[in-house]
C-alpha cells in the first residue's frame, strides 16, 4: 500500500475466457482438497466410511463361508469379495451426492458462497473445483478400500484390462453423475444446519434398496423396479460387473450385467442433473 495516487485506473479486462475459468478451477481444486482433509468429521463420515463398513462386514461374516459356488463346488468367493463392489459404489455416492450436497448447502448458509459470488471467480471454476475435489477424494478413498480389501482380506482385484476398463468408465460416469446430482440437491435444504438431516436419510434408504448392503435380487420385485429408477442401483451393478467373476451376472435381475442400460441410465441422470444444477444453483438465496 504505497504511493498516494488519485487517478482513474484503466480497468484490466479479465473477460470470460475458458482458459481463465480452467486455471482458477485448478486453483480451487488444490484449495478445496486441502480444506477437505482438514475437516475431521467429513474425513470420518465420508472418507473412511466405506472402508469401515467393509471392515465390519468382512469381520462379521468371515465365518459364514464363501458364496456363489458353481454347481461343482468351485469358484466361490469370500463374503468380503462379494461386498466390495457395493461399498465402492457407496463411496462414490457418499463423496459425490452426500458430501457435496451437504457441503454446498453449508457454504450457502455460512456465507462462503456469498463471498465467492462477490469476487470475480467464474461459476465454472467453482464447479471444476468441486468436481475435481470429488474425483481426487473418491480415488483416494477407493485406493484405501481396495488396499484394505486386497491386503487385509485377500480379495482378488480384476485381473484383466477389460474389467479395469469397465471399472474405469463406470467409476468416471458415476462420479460425473454424483457431482451434478450433489450440486442439484444442495439447494433442497433451507439451511446448512438441516442439510445432513435432509440428504443423509434419502441416500441411506437408497443404499439399502440399491444392492449395496443386500443382494439386490433378494428385494421384492416392486422394490427392485422402484430402485432401478435411481442411479445407485446401476452404479452398484456396474461395480459388480467389474469386480465379480463373470458367472455372477446370472444372479442379476435380467441374468446379465446390463452394461448398455447402466451407461444409459447414468448418462441420463448426469444430463438431467446438469440441467437441474444449472437451473437451481445460486451464489445466494434469491429474495422475492
Amino acid at each position: 500500500m504505497s504511493a498516494a495516487v488519485r487517478q482513474e485506473r484503466t480497468p484490466v479486462r479479465i473477460g470470460s475466457s475458458p482458459a481463465r475459468a480452467l486455471r482458477l478451477g485448478g486453483v480451487r481444486v488444490g484449495y478445496e482438497v486441502r480444506q477437505y482433509f482438514r475437516q475431521r468429521d467429513t474425513l470420518f463420515f465420508t472418507f473412511l466410511f466405506p472402508t469401515l463398513i467393509f471392515l465390519i462386514f468382512a469381520a462379521a461374516f468371515s465365518g459364514s463361508g464363501d458364496v456363489g459356488a458353481a454347481p461343482d463346488g468351485s469358484g466361490a468367493i469370500s463374503v468380503a469379495a462379494y461386498y466390495l463392489p457395493g461399498l465402492v459404489a457407496a463411496g462414490v455416492v457418499l463423496s459425490g451426492i452426500q458430501n457435496l450436497g451437504i457441503d454446498i448447502a453449508q457454504e450457502r448458509s455460512d456465507g462462503t458462497l456469498k463471498r465467492l459470488g462477490g469476487s470475480p471467480l467464474p461459476i465454472a471454476s467453482y464447479f471444476i473445483g468441486k468436481a475435481g475435489t470429488v474425483l481426487v477424494t473418491a480415488v483416494a478413498q477407493l485406493v484405501l478400500l481396495l488396499t484394505v480389501a486386497g491386503l487385509g482380506f485377500g480379495v482378488a482385484l480384476p485381473a484383466d484390462g477389460e474389467h479395469w476398463l469397465r471399472f474405469a468408465w463406470v467409476f468416471l460416469l458415476s462420479i460425473a453423475m454424483a457431482v451434478v446430482i450433489g450440486v442439484a440437491v444442495s439447494s433442497l435444504p433451507r439451511t446448512g444446519r438441516s442439510a445432513s438431516a435432509v440428504i443423509v436419510p434419502v441416500l441411506l434408504v437408497l443404499q439399502f434398496v440399491s444392492g449395496v448392503y443386500f443382494r439386490f435380487t433378494d428385494l421384492p420385485a416392486w422394490l427392485q423396479d422402484a430402485a432401478s429408477l435411481f442411479p445407485l442401483k446401476w452404479v452398484a451393478q456396474g461395480m459388480r460387473s467389474a469386480f465379480l467373476p463373470e458367472r455372477f451376472a446370472a444372479a442379476e435381475q435380467t441374468g446379465t450385467w446390463d452394461l448398455a442400460t447402466t451407461a444409459l441410465v447414468l448418462a441420463g441422470w448426469t444430463l438431467g442433473g446438469l440441467v437441474l444444477a444449472r437451473l437451481t444453483f445460486r451464489w445466494v438465496r434469491r429474495d422475492a
Binding site: V12, I14, D110, R115, G118
Partner: peptide
C-alpha cells in the same frame, strides 16, 4: 466478472 474485479466487498457478517 470484469465489473466484479473492480469491486471490493466486506459483508456484514460471515461465519
Amino acid at each position: 466478472l470484469d465489473w466484479r474485479a473492480r469491486l471490493g466487498i466486506v459483508l456484514q457478517s460471515a461465519s
